[in-house]
Design a protein around this nucleic acid. Structure first.
Length: 548
RNA sequence: GGCCCCUUGGUCAAGCGGCUAAGACGACGGCCUCUCACGCCGUAAACAUGGGUUCGAUUCCCGUAGGGGUCACCA
């Protein structure tokens, strides 16, 4: 076979060789140990937890080592591409504060190893594919979709492995004249790698978290270039990660099965493969068993889910980091105030089996994160969230900015801060009683207080109430009120012999709480009343008395 | 079906030949307490299974089972 003639027939426009590309994209000049990692999403308009999970590992690995973290857009599948897909990707990474050093931008590229969109790299893949053809390692294949399907059925019937290999690779040794006439007749074709691999032979590959892997060689003639001349993932990965000088490829474990293909292709090109780090997939409990999170079935996989609920960026990252590195939680407990970037991230600490995503755990992490924020920070983030998802609420927050901040400051800042807020959507619930517009009281009284008594208590309290009272004076008055109505003002005594009283000071204070907050729970009532001010307090006392 | 990965409480997980098998979330109970939230104390709860190797296996090896993934001109 005259491979030169075949190469010229297939790639008449190609004049360069891989050696030329080596020159154009020389090895990076980086200090020893610096890692080059990439985030390589498809612009499908859908960013999910898995993307972020891997990206955090990429970003940490790169930046912690003084290396490069770059963005490459894998747009080789036009069918799945969505308008604005790249914008979504860029927005997500800027929102989650994972800064790229180079890569695709909204309008083009930034960096010396571009282009960073695979479709724009077509000529690069062609140079490499042509070279493989020249070496006799690649050939055009004219198998149609129907023929491929039929092949698979035969293979299934005969209990053989699926795929295009050995004798099934019918176009391997097609004479060049026939190839030429098929091409001239307009028959579409793909370019396949001609595999010399043998399933009975083994290869060893090292994975950064799994250690040495022992796998069979690849014997499949995989597609390098699709009929439209655009590469498949396999070929694009090899060409791009080599020419872009990636040193660590972080990707999901679903790529483990095709790793022998990649190793084979790197070998065929005469290139050294990068290091690999295959992450465990995020799982979810479904019925009785675990399964990989699916974007069709699981709304919580989409990052937009967390934005809408108002989970903070910091909380989602912290939670993901705790899944990524098992010792992160301990480190965080020791270093509650340090930025995430100070944590010494290590691939060795990553787990190999799929972690079940737990929203309860996220909530716990989230409460901790929010409780450590200042009232001003909470106000700022909450308002920004409301601007986007709940403008009416945002307007209330702005109108009463100073008071809202004081409300948010209750129980904040000490050693043991309150943890009422998980995400901004429930901050709204938490604050709802504070604004007349969202105040929807439920005046269900404690069982120990009849309506008539409650009304009298409120009237009596209205007389006692002094806006200037501090918490000591405030509570003294509530106790006095309790006594006046024959309720016990000593909780210890009451718990010993509850039958001696109609109820306790807790019930009495809850009547007042009901009037002020419209519900049986609230943060420190005295503080709340001070923030509301006498006018609002009296209004609310009157409102409840009227309702009873 | 072939191949690959994985297997410690409900969940996330320490462990890396000898331990009463950590810790966290969740659950439950209690304390604190004017409610709630916090905090504190406590309880229940695990090495999938069968063979080896060894004085000794959660830990090493093999098998089995189970779970997951992958076998596209998708990534």
């Amino acid at each position: 076979m005259d491979t030169t003639a075949l190469a010229n027939l297939l790639f008449p426009e190609v004049t360069e060789t891989p050696a030329d590309l080596e020159q154009r994209y020389p090895p990076r000049n980086l200090p020893e140990g610096a890692r080059v990692c990439r985030m390589a999403p498809s612009p499908t308009g859908f960013m999910h937890l898995g993307n972020l999970y891997g990206a955090i590992a990429d970003e940490r690995l790169a930046h912690q080592s003084g290396g490069v973290f770059y963005l490459r857009i894998e747009d080789t599948d036009q069918k799945r591409e969505v308008a604005g897909g790249v914008e979504t990707i860029l927005d997500t990474f800027s929102q989650y504060k994972l800064p790229f050093d180079e890569g695709a931008t909204l309008t083009g590229d930034s960096g010396a190893y571009g282009p960073y969109r695979q479709r724009q790299r077509a000529s690069l893949y062609h140079v490499c594919a042509r070279w493989l053809v020249l070496q006799g390692k690649a050939y055009p294949c004219f198998l149609t979709e129907e023929e491929l399907t039929a092949m698979r059925e035969t293979q299934a019937a005969e209990k053989l492995n699926f795929g295009c290999y050995g004798d099934f690779a019918r176009y391997r040794d097609t004479p060049i004249d026939l190839i030429k006439s098929l091409i001239d007749s307009g028959k579409p074709y793909v370019v396949r790698y001609r595999s010399e691999g043998d399933l009975s032979k083994r290869i060893a590959v090292d994975d950064l978290i799994r250690g040495r892997l022992d796998m069979p060689e690849n014997d499949q003639d995989v597609v390098l270039l699709k009929a439209d001349g655009i590469p498949t993932y396999h070929f694009a990965h090899v060409v791009d990660d080599h020419l872009m000088r990636t040193t660590v490829v972080v990707r999901g474990e679903e790529w483990l099965a095709t790793l022998p293909i990649h190793i084979q292709l790197f070998g065929a090109m005469g290139w050294k493969p990068p290091k690999y780090l295959h992450t465990a997939s995020l799982m979810k409990m479904d019925g009785g068993s675990k399964r990989k999170l699916s974007k069709r079935k699981d709304p919580e996989l989409a990052l937009s889910f967390y934005s809408e609920k108002g989970y903070t960026v910091a909380a989602v990252k912290e939670y993901l980091m705790s899944l990524l590195n098992s010792n992160f939680e301990d480190w965080r407990a020791m270093n509650p105030e340090k930025p995430l970037e100070d944590f010494p991230f290590s691939p060795k600490k990553m787990g190999t089996s799929g972690a079940l995503f737990s929203i309860e755990k996220l909530d716990d992490v989230s409460k901790g994160v929010v409780s450590r924020m200042s009232a001003d920070e909470v106000y700022g983030e909450l308002t920004a969230w409301a601007d986007r998802y709940d403008p009416d609420f945002a307007a209330l927050l702005r109108r009463d900015e100073a008071k809202t901040k004081r409300m948010l400051a209750i129980g904040r800042g000490g050693k043991k801060p309150r943890k009422d807020i998980t995400a901004w959507s429930d901050a709204k619930t938490y604050l709802s009683f504070f604004f007349d517009e969202t105040f929807t009281p439920d005046y269900t009284l404690p069982e120990t207080v009849p309506a008539g008594a409650a009304k009298e208590m409120l009237a009596a309290y209205a007389d006692l109430y002094n806006p200037a009272d501090d918490s000591g004076e405030w509570f003294a008055k509530v106790k006095q009120l309790a006594c006046n109505f024959g309720y016990c003002d000593d909780m210890k005594a009451y718990k010993q012999t509850p039958e001696n009283w109609p109820g306790s000071v807790a019930d009495v204070s809850n009547v007042v709480r009901l009037a002020i907050a419209g519900r049986p729970q609230s943060p420190d009532l005295c503080e709340v009343m001070q923030i509301m001010g006498p006018e609002m307090v009296r209004q609310r006392l009157d409102r409840m008395m009227g309702a009873l």
